[in-house]
Design a protein around this nucleic acid. Structure first.
Length: 495
RNA sequence: CGCGGGGUGGAGCAGACUGGUAGCUCGUCAGGCUCAUAACCUGAAGGUCGGACGUUCAAAUCGUCCCCCCGCAACCA
């Protein structure tokens, strides 16, 4: 089982429609999943939805729906999007499924038995209209920071998880596992946070009278589970179970990669490993926090009204162009600027001019000079460029691999050598001047030359598969193993 | 001094750890070619690397200080 690859996305919170940020994580996870499947790894790609908590309860009430019905609707929207985006997940988990709820309750039971949870009367400030609890430091002159109305001091009995107990362990773990948190800047951020702050224990329950939409605590029916504590457990509830001795059994765990957005790094890099530690379960191997897509250099948010709907982008540009843009335009981990102009640049430049046109011009030559027949050609070309191309083809896989998890996860860099190969081929055509070879009737040389191009195109089709599955297939249909038949241009230019 | 990230030709970025002719993509301009989706190829212009001081034979790169931009600052995602 050492070539298994268990990869996850966060569970998306169903209180709002999916935006490009959600699609980004899934596309990245899909790309890696396809890549590792092609390498012959056993891949398990998990995604899903987070459906409990106050925001859902309220959003559902606002529509006059039961929370579960509300969530069902949201789930179908997410699933529909993943289908459109060609996301090849192996499992989709919902936090309202019984397999998950049972696991959460089991976890709570185990931790309770082990003394990792304790009761504590909590004091704080409550804003009744907002139904929100605020800490001493959050309230502003006795008022709710949200609605500015007065808050009242209340006492509440809750259950707390002993996060603080494991702080030193976590610091050690991060220090001794270089690849635990990626990219390195995020690793530093978490480490600095842990070194400079004392963790306080995590309140993992909510009284039912305040919030009913959640998983009940098995040892206290008047409380439900705090949503993050509930949601994180999905990563193990989906792929295993606890045996009689409370030992977790799974063929997939530990996860090889948790892909997340930078906004939920703390939950994943602090709460989650400590929860696992307390359960005596191994931590995940790698947590990768990617950046955000900015719209006109500002944060995408509902209040700004600048949220981009992925479906609209797909309708406009097509799935593969959209996927390519997200994976290519920004080094994975950094924030990026999203704009239609930027997508158009990628489509016209990289896809239409470089890749699409290479395929098209090559196929035209095959039709024009060889009536579409170019089989069993032995390549004996000794010129420098043909050799250079040959070397590039041979080195390509390992160059891609480096940035697909071997040293780093960087889709942008993984794609670069593919385009270097494409550009090399375009230059080769220019320098060889095949139209002259045709005029001079140097048929043999011309044939070998075109065979080199065909080889480049086939290699490219294989290499881009994880990033643009449809395009990879479309190229193979035109320049397949046995058949060569020119089709329409792969990517029309957008003027 | 709360923490972290960043300020490099018109735009977006790399380089900074291990100082030594500032690189890439797009855009602009000029030329070449015709197999090709006005695509492709070649060449050129354009930067005192946020500011100041310092270390050094030499600093985008190291040190100190300052300015500006962006996140985060913990329990309800």
């Amino acid at each position: 089982m050492n070539n298994k690859f268990y990869i996850t996305t966060p569970l998306y919170y169903v209180n709002a429609a999916p935006h490009i940020g959600h699609s980004y994580t899934c596309i990245a996870a899909d790309c890696l999943s396809r890549y590792y499947r092609n390498l012959g790894h056993k891949v398990h790609f998990l995604t899903g939805t987070d459906e409990h908590g106050q925001k859902i309860q309220r959003a559902a009430e606002a529509q006059g729906l039961e929370p579960k019905v509300f969530a069902d609707k949201a789930v179908s929207v997410f699933k529909g999007l993943w289908e459109t985006l060609n996301i090849s997940y192996d499992d989709f988990i919902r936090t309202t499924e019984s397999r998950h709820e049972k696991a959460v309750q089991k976890v709570l039971e185990i931790l309770y038995k082990k003394g990792e949870l304790y009761e504590h009367v909590y004091q704080g400030w409550y804003c009744t209209p907002c139904e929100t609890f605020w800490s001493e430091s959050q309230i502003q002159a006795g008022n709710c920071p949200d609605c500015k109305r007065p808050v009242e001091k209340i006492e509440e009995k809750n259950y707390f998880f002993k996060l603080s107990k494991y702080q030193d362990w976590l610091i050690d773990h991060i220090k001794s596992h270089q690849d635990f948190i990626f990219p390195p800047s995020r690793r530093e951020e978490v480490l600095r946070f842990l070194e400079l702050n004392k963790l306080s224990d995590l309140c993992i329950s909510r009284p039912k009278e305040r919030l009913s939409w959640g998983i009940p605590l098995p040892f206290s029916p008047n409380h439900v589970t705090y949503v993050w504590f509930d949601a994180l457990i999905n990563y193990i509830s989906a792929v295993g179970s606890f045996d009689k001795n409370d030992k977790y059994q799974s063929e997939w765990w530990p996860a090889d990669l948790h892909l997340i957005g930078k906004d939920i790094l703390r939950q994943h890099a602090v709460y989650w490993p400590i929860m696992l530690k307390a359960l005596d379960i191994q931590p995940p191997k790698t947590i990768f926090a990617h950046g955000w897509w900015m719209i006109d250099s500002s944060k995408m948010s509902k209040s700004r009204g600048n949220v981009v709907n992925p479906i609209e982008m797909v309708d406009k540009f097509g799935v593969d162009v959209y996927r390519y843009f997200l994976l290519r335009d920004v080094p994975f981990g950094m924030d990026g600027n999203f704009s239609e102009d930027a997508i158009i640049k990628r489509q016209n430049g990289d896809l239409a001019n470089d890749l699409g046109n290479l395929v098209y011009r090559t196929l035209t030559m095959i039709e024009k000079y060889f009536q579409g027949e170019i089989t069993n050609v032995e390549i004996n070309l000794k010129n420098k460029q043909a050799k250079e191309i040959e070397e590039k083809i041979n080195a390509l896989d390992s160059m891609i691999k480096t940035n697909m998890g071997e040293k780093d996860y960087n889709f942008s860099l993984a794609l670069e050598p593919i385009w270097e190969l494409i550009n090399l081929a375009n230059k080769y055509i220019e320098d060889t001047k095949p139209w002259n070879l045709a005029k001079e009737n140097k048929t043999g040389e011309l044939k070998e030359f075109i065979a080199v191009l065909v080889k480049v195109i086939r290699k490219t089709a294989d290499a881009i598969y994880p990033f643009m599955p449809f395009t990879s297939e479309a190229i193979k249909q035109q320049v397949g193993k046995d058949n060569i038949s020119k089709g329409k241009p792969l990517f029309p230019r957008i003027e």
